[in-house]
Design a protein around this nucleic acid. Structure first.
Lengths: 215, 215
DNA sequence: ACCTGAACACCGTTCAAGT
DNA sequence: ACCTGAACACCGTTCAAGT
């Protein structure tokens, strides 16, 4: 009747869990990816790790703090994808397009993860400083790429942060449309990204007509 | 000790509530606007209307169905704002800009409302048909405006739905950035919308250089 | 037909107690 | 120092019973 939670031949290594904080974050992410953020309960997450449901409070202030930690790592993962698309792509226009595609694909492949990052589950007002730092770093990756393209006279010399916000809003919006199921037809997401990259470029590229039509 | 829930001089008009479904939606929206979607409980909403916490089940399948109804009305309200900005603006380019600003302002002024509409609280998969209809109608308002501008040769003659998705993603993304607190500096939202409208236009307007450089 | 109120199975969080 | 387990105050939902 009373089934033991741990098999006898592989007992818990010690009374103390090795790195419970790490295990909690990993298990939270796995649950979110597999079943969505609504299915994440402290009870289930504790059971899967083999720990009491209140053990979490030794490492996090509350459930929201755990989600904040997940979101923080999400921004770090996103940033890494963006940076490698940019750098491995050769830091040119094509690399920038790859960056945009990488962003949207990250969101569509990890919808629940993305929703934790942007869905308002974490502190919006006085954000967690670590979360704010990682989110800012991801944004900075975009700013750096734009600044580089501006230096090469490929993009307009507008305020870089303003331009970055414009681009971020666009990819973020496409990602949300994809997550919300508005791009369900096969190829719709790829088609939109492709179109957006073309129209975005025409929009923010240096205006080559200015040389002949003005001054 | 036992304080009565209703004052004696203004008794309940009847055992049956006049239009409980309407009252539930209104109260849910009011609570969402005032305290956010997390604060919305069936108990509190019932208490405010003066009805049992389980009375809701006579009119909605569950709590999610109530939120779906709120989201459905949200899309109707959004559509109305878009259409009046477009029509009262004179159905020209300036009117289209007003439409974009109206969209972002709707979201920023009603963040929790907007989050219910897009935050994944409602059915994403097999969406409620009424919700799908209203969401589609709001999107159609954008498609119609773009088609009109295409007819006037103000915009490129690209696939209108694809172009509409591009524009929708952009305004949706700006709205989400605003809601998530990334545009907190005073004027940041207005500045971004202004910049976006300019760059969007240059991106999707008919390419006037094509006439001289090609064919 | 419409609503109540007790009951049920959950949930996050707290805290004295264990190791 | 770290974790347990009972307790607490909630929550959405169900259902027999009331009007």
């Amino acid at each position: 009747m009373s089934t033991p939670k741990r098999s006898a031949h592989k007992p818990r290594r010690s009374y103390h869990h090795g790195n419970l904080r790490r295990a909690l974050i990993d298990q939270a992410l796995a649950t979110i990816q597999a079943e969505g953020v609504d299915a994440l309960t402290l009870r289930s997450i504790g059971a899967r790790i083999g720990v009491s449901r209140s053990a979490l409070y030794r490492h996090f202030a509350d459930k929201r703090a755990l989600l904040t930690a997940v979101a923080t790592e999400g921004f770090a993962a996103l940033r890494q994808k963006l940076v490698s698309a940019w750098e491995e792509g050769g830091r040119d226009e094509a690399a920038f397009r790859a960056m945009g595609a990488a962003y949207v694909h990250f969101a569509i492949e990890n919808p629940s993860y993305y929703r934790v990052m942007f869905g308002g589950f974490v502190d919006q007002e006085a954000r967690d400083p670590e979360l704010a730092r990682e989110a800012m770093a991801a944004f900075q990756a975009l700013v750096d790429a734009l600044a580089s393209l501006q230096r090469d006279s490929i993009l307009r010399s507008d305020d870089t942060v303003l331009m970055a916000r414009y681009v971020w809003a666009l990819v973020h919006g496409m990602a949300m449309l994809g997550i919300d199921g508005n791009l369900r037809e096969p190829g719709a997401a790829e088609q939109l990204v492709h179109y957006a990259v073309e129209r975005l470029h025409t929009g923010i590229a240096v205006d080559r007509t200015a040389r002949t039509s003005r001054s």
